[in-house]
Write a protein that binds this DNA or RNA. Sequence first.
DNA 1: TTCAGATGTGACCATTGGAAACATGCCGGC
DNA 2: GCCGGCATGTTTCCAATGGTCACATCTGAA
Lengths: 207, 207
Amino acid sequence: MKERLKKGGDRYHHGNLRDALVRAAEQQIARSGDIALPLRDVARLVGVSHAAAYRHFDSKQALLAEVAARGFEALTVALTAGAARGRGPAERLVEAAVGYVSFALEQPGAYRVMFHATLKPFTRFPRLAEASLAALEVLRALVREGLATKAFSGEADAAVMATWALVHGQALLVLDGQLSGPFGIDAAQGALAARTSMKRLLEGLRR
Amino acid sequence: MKERLKKGGDRYHHGNLRDALVRAAEQQIARSGDIALPLRDVARLVGVSHAAAYRHFDSKQALLAEVAARGFEALTVALTAGAARGRGPAERLVEAAVGYVSFALEQPGAYRVMFHATLKPFTRFPRLAEASLAALEVLRALVREGLATKAFSGEADAAVMATWALVHGQALLVLDGQLSGPFGIDAAQGALAARTSMKRLLEGLRR
DNA sequence: TTCAGATGTGACCATTGGAAACATGCCGGC
DNA sequence: GCCGGCATGTTTCCAATGGTCACATCTGAA
């Protein structure tokens, strides 16, 4: 007998606290633009005492690791969906790049946590490590596809790195507002700018 | 009568506390890889009570802003020095990119602070804003030079953004150890990888 | 020499992450 | 049906942190 939350409203047991905490944390970070969120605020948002969180996570870091892991899983989906929009290896890579940056701008809280240094070494969070590699693998596959069909040339690893660096950098510069002053690029135009940049890089990868 | 620190060793007045705090903070962040350094630790490193820091900085953020501002100034120097190593506009831009990533890897503490979201809006730290724009201006000038001499083509802003995104992303991925597992790239090879990536992007910018 | 301003100290405060002891409610075995 | 164990949540507590304040110490200029 689950799912009878409608009635009481204030129940002693939340029912789905782990999930609720992860989502609240993500939203808080998206708002503040900073990892340093008080765990107590997250708990309060969910309507629970801060100590309750420790029934579901060993530490605040573990909660953040969960946010990050889900983020990488969503990123994998976004990359795949993006690639599916493109026709031909080159266009598929470009659209995946656009999907990447769009994801970062749509879920900034998750994206910041995903690449936050304090969550390394990944070894402490196996699910996070796995999710991270899975996302990277999508990019790798797209590059391999391009190389196999002679759409690009050169070394695979180098192409993957260049692509990843470009989209990662573009996403973070937009997220941090670094491009809003000098270039007038905010979150709305970020993905568009990424397409332009990625097309240029792709020209270089072709030969 | 300054500069007589040799004698007493433990003096009530430090003599150059502001500067010492900035440098200690940078080193601590470089070690931990995280902005969240206890101000007390920094003060202890310098041999001073934590409250003393507030004689020189309004807040911990203001101290970090100073670290960041100095970082951007050093980055400007690194970019200029890098560009000077290149012959011709294209090579100059590549070498500036290498200089950029090298700087980030050599001064990781400063680099992390420089792009940390909590220091925005820049408006609160005018010196930081100015230093940041000065560094960007070096990149802009290099791109303009390339366009003027027909070494590259296309729109200037787009080329600057793509370049900046590439080096920023490459620097952060290496710093965060994201490339060490999948690609075996650590700080030592980071700049080399940046050269490879930048050359590829440049091929795309040429046409 | 003196004293006013600059610089450093120790005591204090509210907030934070985390641990511990206690409270509550859900579920399966009788 | 009921009852006891286990998961989940609360209250209370602690040490560390950023920050403030009153007080101590030093420095240099009048």
